[in-house]
Simulated assay, not measured.
Amino acid sequence: MPRSRPPAVWFAEEPHRKPRLSRERITRAAVSLLDADGVEGLTMRRLAARLEAGTMSLYEYVGSREDLLDLAVDEVIAEIEVDGVDHAPWREALTRQLTRSRRVMRRHPWLPALMATRPLLGPHALARSELIYSILDRAGLQGPHLSAGVAALTYYVQGYTATENLWRGSHRDPEAETELRRRAQRYLDGRKELHPTLARHADLDNNDFDGSFRLGLDTVLDGIAARIGA
């Protein structure tokens, strides 16, 4: 009969083992493998080969591949800097912090999807969640409006960056991308009578991800500011 284990890796203490392997070393190797091959490329066998260890030896430090994903997520979330926002105005603090989050999600393209589907209970994830909640709390949001504000910002950043990562991963030739955008815009311009609003505003030629991200973030923050004012 298989032994029972806690429902999340964070509820169990790491056992003391010989120093050749450690949970930290295994986690760092998992992050490296995820960066190279994505979530589908992370298997315990491939990870063991990278560490020059036996596959079963990994299970002495992590209970499952799912636990390993949680550890890897928290490892890279630690890269999101948290300094310099404690005393800044709330909009400036959130813009700075969420821009940092996007930067880390760009560096690790697998991160947005896992952040949206894993229990973010690691120490680094909780510390950064606490920071976002505290900024909005100081700004004046309370109760359900506070939770809704955090969710709107979180889903915007994760969704935008996940889409950006997929697009950049699929279109690596700048000239080919520019030509594709021009053809798409011309196609839409030729259908103004059917889709007049799209033809006027879709702006398919625009490939400024940074500017579009900031404009969208400002739009979400405007809504939060209106709620605070109300």
Rank of each mutant, 00 (worst) to 15 (best):
P6C: 02
P7W: 12
E13N: 05
E14N: 06
H16P: 10
H16R: 13
R17C: 10
K18Y: 09
L21C: 07
S22P: 10
E24D: 14
R25H: 00
A29C: 05
A30L: 04
V39A: 06
G41A: 03
M44G: 14
M44S: 12
R45D: 11
L47M: 01
L47D: 02
S57E: 14
S57H: 10
L58G: 10
L58Q: 06
Y61K: 08
Y61S: 13
G63N: 13
S64Q: 03
S64K: 06
R65S: 08
D67C: 01
L71E: 04
A72C: 05
I80V: 14
E81G: 14
D83V: 07
G84D: 02
D86W: 08
E92P: 00
A93I: 12
R100I: 05
R103Y: 02
R103C: 04
R106K: 04
W110D: 02
W110F: 11
A116H: 01
A116E: 12
T117D: 00
R118H: 05
G122I: 01
A127W: 03
A127S: 13
E130V: 10
I135M: 04
L136F: 12
G140K: 08
G140M: 09
G149Q: 10
A151G: 02
A151T: 12
A152W: 00
G159F: 05
G159Y: 07
T161A: 04
E164I: 06
W167Q: 11
R172A: 13
D173A: 02
A176P: 10
A176N: 11
R181W: 03
A184I: 05
G190Y: 09
K192E: 15
E193V: 12
P196N: 06
L198D: 14
L198T: 08
A199V: 13
H201C: 12
H201I: 13
A202W: 15
D203W: 05
N207E: 01
N207F: 03
D210N: 12
R214N: 10
R214F: 00
L221Q: 02
L221C: 07
I224L: 15
A225N: 02
A225Y: 01
A225E: 15
R227V: 15
I228Q: 09
I228E: 04
G229F: 09
